[in-house]
Design a protein around this nucleic acid. Structure first.
Length: 344
DNA sequence: AAAGCGGGGGC
DNA sequence: GCCCCAGCTTT
């Protein structure tokens, strides 16, 4: 990695970059929140969530004092929900350990839950002006092309190497802007999927991958794992004006969020009626709903659905009005398709 | 080192 | 359909 890329990238960044809410004012808390939200998540998906979050929790203390239910509700639909729990827990730790102010120290930031090497580097450099690299997926891709490097960027070892290279050339005076210029380049010019815009690149003249005609085929990634398929029968349980929901287990997929109750496997109307009766549920009405598919990273849910109207509320379900469900309970996107019935 | 962990937008 | 995103944690 050559230090010659620093000045062209900084100049290119100064000439114009995306106007992002968290760039308006680089307070460490704002940088931190944005970086957690941006983990494995596109900028456009984050914008709205970020604005709502800052309205609700303008500083570390406000976040630390919040209920977890409110935190998860504000995160609803953004995915990777452990990020929200860790952010909440970390805010409380920051209040206990540092009096409510984030520490201006890479190692101390790294020790917070949910903060890994990338996020610690981003907050340290952008929020505090410390001279540390911040190597994310964009930067790994940019580096692979600059160096004409065919080592898989998905390897932990490769990320270590790249981080080491950048730690040597990160400028003392503008580390945050330099790190952001690399990510900006990856997000707007050095694009993935064989679609780099080398003609618009400020460091094309320094790019070995471009020079060798490899920009389109780099970077190399490890093969993805296969996804398993789970069949489920989802129930929209209604009793009077209310809907029956339940809390998911504290660990695993969608941990601690609310869900519509469901049964393993695809179940026909007759079998479902029998199984619900065996539970002691008094089914007044059973309507088949349009099925839905939801794709997670490592599993697909293939869901069939039934609207089940009951005469009385059974044990084990929490009954809430549709309005309360919308306003106060964090329900993952996977179940959204089955709620359209409630809008009548 | 590998697997678990969401959701969506672009092609 | 497939790709992959301003990754982290646990096993």
């Amino acid at each position: 990695m050559t230090k010659a890329i620093v000045e062209p990238l900084l100049q290119w960044y100064d000439e114009g970059h995306r106007d992002l809410p968290w760039r308006r004012e680089a307070a460490p808390y704002r940088v931190w929140v944005s970086e957690i939200m941006l983990q494995q998540t596109r900028v456009e998906a984050v914008r709205g969530y970020y604005e709502r979050w800052m309205q609700a929790f303008p500083d570390v203390r406000a976040l630390a004092a919040a209920d977890e239910a409110q935190v998860l509700k504000l995160w609803e639909g953004l995915g990777y929900y452990s990020r929200a729990r860790n952010l909440h827990r970390a805010a409380q730790l920051v209040c206990e350990r540092y009096g409510g102010t984030l520490p201006a120290d890479y190692e101390a930031l790294l020790a917070l839950p949910g903060v890994g090497e990338y996020t610690a580097g981003a907050v340290a450099s952008i929020g505090f002006g410390l001279r540390v690299p911040a190597v994310d997926g964009n930067v790994l891709r940019v580096a692979a092309r600059l160096n004409d490097d065919f080592m898989p960027i998905t390897d932990a070892k490769q990320k270590k190497r790249t981080t080491g290279h950048f730690s040597e050339i990160t400028p003392e005076d503008r580390p945050g802007d330099f790190n952001q210029s690399l990510m900006e380049l990856g997000a707007t010019v050095c694009l993935p999927n064989g679609a780099p815009r080398c003609g618009s690149c400020p460091v094309q003249h320094l790019c070995l991958g471009y020079h060798h005609g490899h920009a389109e085929i780099l970077p190399v990634r490890a093969a993805k794992r296969a996804r398993r398929i789970e069949e489920r029968t989802v129930l929209l349980v209604r009793c009077g004006e209310e809907v029956g929901i339940r809390r998911r287990p504290k660990t695993g997929l969608l941990a601690g969020l609310w869900e519509l109750p469901s049964l393993e496997g695809k179940t026909g109307a007759n079998e479902l009626r029998a199984r619900l009766s065996a539970r002691g549920w008094q089914v007044e009405k059973l309507l088949s709903l349009r099925g839905a598919k939801h794709v997670f990273t490592h599993v697909e849910w293939h869901m069939s659905g039934f609207e089940v109207t009951l005469a009385e509320k059974p044990e084990g379900l929490t009954f809430v009005t549709p309005q309360a469900l919308r306003e106060s309970y964090a329900l993952p996107s996977a179940f959204r398709a089955f709620l359209s019935v409630l809008e009548e």
